[in-house]
């Protein structure tokens, strides 16, 4: 594996947490590389370590052993603020629980990352993105006034607002019914194609996983198959 061809590369990742009377290995010996533009599904049962892996790859947490490189930077060599800057520049997120700011309107939620990075014309860009996800008419609504599917579409618009090189999605349909989930996933893949974003998707939904260009499966913290 040549590091330059991967936007994310993990080597021999392990995550160990203390528990009563000892410790628990949530992840052990996970190595993988993700190429730009690729879409990767991480599947596995509940508790298999999927979300932990996602957190480590995105630099939200540090591994107990092993290294993660994101856009050529070793995350272990950066402090939390350094990792935050890296995330701001390269990474977008979509969460199972949407994580919208409850006191912001849909428009303001999408504007937020643009404002944080001082990107020009945040309002018009956010408006365009909301129109793209089919919510042109709901820009002034607060999250609590939107349905689950609508909230997730706002979250997707927000994730793509800064045009990240890589998008991490944690069970993006976990809180949605099947039909709504399908619509949201369609949207996610469409935008992914349009913008050439790398997509890392954690799910236990095999139908969703099958739409990705590659799948890996976690079982009890270990990587089972890596086609």
């Amino acid at each position: 594996m040549e590091s330059s061809e991967f936007i994310v590369q993990a080597r021999d990742l392990g995550k160990r947490v203390p528990v009563a009377g000892g410790h628990l290995d949530i992840l052990q010996g996970v190595s993988l590389g993700i190429k730009p533009g690729e879409s990767l599904a991480v599947v596995g049962e509940s508790g298999s370590g999927k979300s932990t892996l996602l957190g480590l790859l995105a630099g939200l947490d540090l591994p107990s052993s092993g290294t993660v490189e994101l856009a050529g930077e070793d995350l272990g060599h950066l402090d939390e603020d350094g990792r935050a800057r890296l995330r701001g520049r390269y990474v977008g997120f979509v969460f199972q629980s949407f994580q919208l700011m409850p006191t912001f309107t849909a428009l303001e939620n999408v504007m937020l990352p643009l404002e944080l990075l001082d990107r020009p014309a945040p309002r018009s860009r956010a408006q365009a993105l909301l129109a793209r996800v089919g919510l042109a008419g709901r820009t002034r609504h607060y999250p609590r006034q939107l349905s689950g599917g609508e909230q997730q579409r706002v979250a997707i618009a927000r994730a793509f607002a800064t045009e990240p090189a890589i998008l991490f999605a944690d069970e993006p349909t976990g809180n949605l019914d099947t039909t709504t989930g399908e619509q949201v996933i369609d949207l996610l893949f469409e935008l992914n194609r349009e913008r050439g974003t790398t997509l890392v998707l954690v799910t236990h939904d095999s139908r969703l996983a099958s739409r990705c260009s590659r799948q890996i499966r976690l079982h009890a913290g270990r990587l089972l198959e890596q086609p």
Binding site: A84, R87, G88, M101, L112, T162
Partner: peptide
Amino acid sequence: YDSSALMRCMGMTGG
């Protein structure tokens, strides 16, 4: 807490 965590995800430093 949540919004702060989110802003940190989006690249905001603690300072």
